[in-house]
Simulated assay, not measured.
Amino acid sequence: MRFLSTLLLGLLIATSSAFAIAPDEILNDPALEARARGLSANLRCMVCQNQSIDDSDAPLAKDLRVLVRERLVAGDSDDEVITYLVDRYGEFVLLKPRFGGHTLILWASAPVVLLAGAIGIFMAVRRRKQMTSDPVASVPLSDAEKARLDSLLKSENS
């Protein structure tokens, strides 16, 4: 029963994007429709924010899907459509931001954090190995400690 419910949930999630695009939005030309789907899969729904306009059923997402198709029918290239939308809505409309000077922190932060974590783990493991490799032998006894130890051992043996 649990497997069946998981399978059903998975099917519902997989087909959820099919319900977002209304039949009246679909273009008659399959090549243009494929281009429109490719573009809209990479554009962010400004209402849902973590969904593409292809997956969202928000009214603004529908408007953006229609706009993309209108621009393609008008003869715009894919890059021209993206440029038009970025000029109009800002770069936030892109699900995958462009690489540039203003997004350098966004792109560089993940590798920097990963490298810092790896260095931290390496140093912690190294420190732990040093601590567990006979910590008593690494600190020599002072002359006073040696004399005290000798006197204790003599008194214990006698």
Results as ranks from 00 to 15, higher is better:
M1G: 14
R2E: 08
L4T: 10
S5F: 10
T6G: 09
L8M: 12
L9R: 05
G10C: 11
L11F: 05
L11D: 13
L12A: 14
I13S: 07
T15S: 13
T15E: 06
A18Y: 01
A18R: 10
A22K: 12
A22P: 08
P23S: 14
I26G: 03
N28G: 08
D29F: 02
P30Y: 01
A31Y: 00
A31G: 02
A34L: 09
R35K: 10
L39C: 10
A41Q: 15
A41K: 12
N42M: 09
N42K: 11
L43T: 12
R44F: 02
C45R: 05
M46Q: 14
M46L: 14
C48M: 07
Q49P: 00
Q49T: 12
Q49F: 00
N50H: 10
Q51M: 11
Q51V: 14
S52G: 14
A58V: 10
P59Q: 10
L60R: 05
K62C: 06
D63H: 07
L64H: 05
L64N: 03
R65P: 00
R65T: 03
V66P: 03
L67P: 01
E70W: 03
E70M: 06
A74F: 02
A74R: 12
G75P: 07
D76R: 00
D78N: 11
D79V: 01
V81I: 09
I82P: 01
I82R: 10
I82K: 06
Y84F: 09
R88S: 04
V93M: 06
L95Q: 11
K96L: 10
F99Y: 06
F99I: 13
G100W: 01
G101F: 03
H102Q: 02
T103H: 14
W107M: 03
A108Q: 11
A108G: 12
S109Y: 03
S109L: 07
S109V: 12
A110Q: 11
P111H: 06
V113F: 08
L114Q: 06
L115C: 06
G117E: 10
A118T: 15
G120C: 06
G120P: 04
I121E: 09
A124L: 07
R126Q: 09
Q130L: 15
M131E: 15
M131F: 14
T132H: 10
P135R: 11
P135H: 02
A137T: 11
S138Y: 01
D143Y: 00
D143V: 00
A144H: 09
A144P: 04
K146C: 04
A147M: 11
A147G: 13
R148C: 07
L149Y: 01
S151A: 15
L152R: 13
L152H: 02
K154T: 02
S155D: 15
S155W: 03
N157K: 14
N157F: 05
N157T: 06
N157S: 06
N157M: 00
S158V: 04
S158C: 06
